[in-house]
Write a protein that binds this DNA or RNA. Structure first.
Lengths: 193, 193
DNA sequence: CGAAAATTTGACATGACTCAACTGGAGTGG
DNA sequence: CCACTCCAGTTGAGTCATGTCAAATTTTCG
């Protein structure tokens, strides 16, 4: 079931042979988390890159002032990890927390490297999704500079309508780089425009 | 000479055999640009991913209000392109402009795909540098939210001391997401602190 | 039902922007 | 070598978007 979900997702990027699938299967480690649990906490080493089968997660950083900054959300068919920590085996900059009960497939860096070795196509696939993530991240930087708070919120709702529903408002405010109070004001303004 | 520079750079990430180098060489296309010239302009297709041998470039987006937003700089040993346009063959979101006379090696997407096929290690290398770029980009998003303008400027000067010298101040202001006037005020404040 | 979490509301504060004018090179051409 | 222009940087007055703080209200959920 879950396995099918994963292979179905993969097939949108690369076509694996029956044999390649057979190779891949033993590497897939399934894991469940409860709402509120952390996959990794800031300061720890992030040992997993997680593919989300089911659930909703956020990745956030707490700065010296104690303010939270949501960097990213992840839902079904997204990957999430603290990439820097995961690759370099360094302390994580981010917390990755489940906002709902979650169901994921997890890869360690050594697993992933083994897979890359055995199935070069899989490394292609990874390169491509990271390219996409990078492009999206730079677009977000530009949006943060070129749009005001109201426009950013509207762009967000349009870009991720699913998230707008599933995620507490104060986390969306944090993702947009504004306070929860101001987002509340903005939503009020939009509703009664 | 230039070739040595490039292989020397590559060797920091992957070790190529003599044969692999021989395969790679015919794919390397050298090109010079003059100060002020564009490698790609917003709206055009970006055909090249460019490795900078010599020079300084900026990547920026012009929004509907006509405001410029610098997304990235590139100097020696950096890669630069409009990644989205380059991969997907879609109109570029960004202008890539030379701030000095520049000397680059350029790869088209089909060249790159051929190289990936012939030398899988090269695709690994690419995956890794894009991972790094992605990590850096998300860190920048957090900095933009957690630091005020003065702190962002100080962080920038520390992170890229070379750039602080080589790039006009108003482009740094744009990179930091503030006006040139306000950066001027900040610098004045720092100097006479 | 009751407590904790999320959201809203309002008064006030401020970081950063806008607009406009001015200064000071760095060419350029006569 | 002077006059002119262009571009980058500076300065200052007034304004605005968004933040802070504090309290009230609503929602969620054990």
């Amino acid at each position: 079931m879950d396995q099918e979900l994963f292979f179905n997702y993969l097939s949108k990027f690369i076509s694996l042979t029956a044999n390649e699938k057979k190779i891949l299967i033993p590497f897939l480690k399934y894991r469940k988390y409860l709402k509120g649990q952390y996959i990794v906490q800031q300061g720890d080493i992030c040992n997993y890159n997680s593919f989300v089968l089911q659930g909703c997660l956020r990745t956030y950083h707490v700065d010296e002032r104690g303010h939270e900054h949501v960097v990213r959300f992840a839902i079904e068919n997204w990957w999430t990890t603290d990439m820097g920590s995961f690759i370099n085996n360094t302390p994580a900059d981010y917390n990755v927390q489940c906002l709902e009960n979650a169901n994921v497939i997890q890869f360690t860096i050594s697993t992933l490297n083994k897979i890359f070795d055995l199935i070069p196509k899989f490394e292609s696939f990874f390169r491509i999704i990271i390219q996409n993530a990078f492009v999206a991240s730079e677009k977000r930087i530009v949006r943060n500079f070129s749009l005001d708070a109201r426009e950013r919120y509207l762009a967000f709702s349009e870009l991720y309508p699913q998230l707008d529903q599933r995620v507490p408002q104060y986390m969306i405010a944090s993702y947009l780089g504004i306070t929860k109070q101001y987002l509340s004001e903005i939503r009020n303004l939009i509703a009664h425009k």
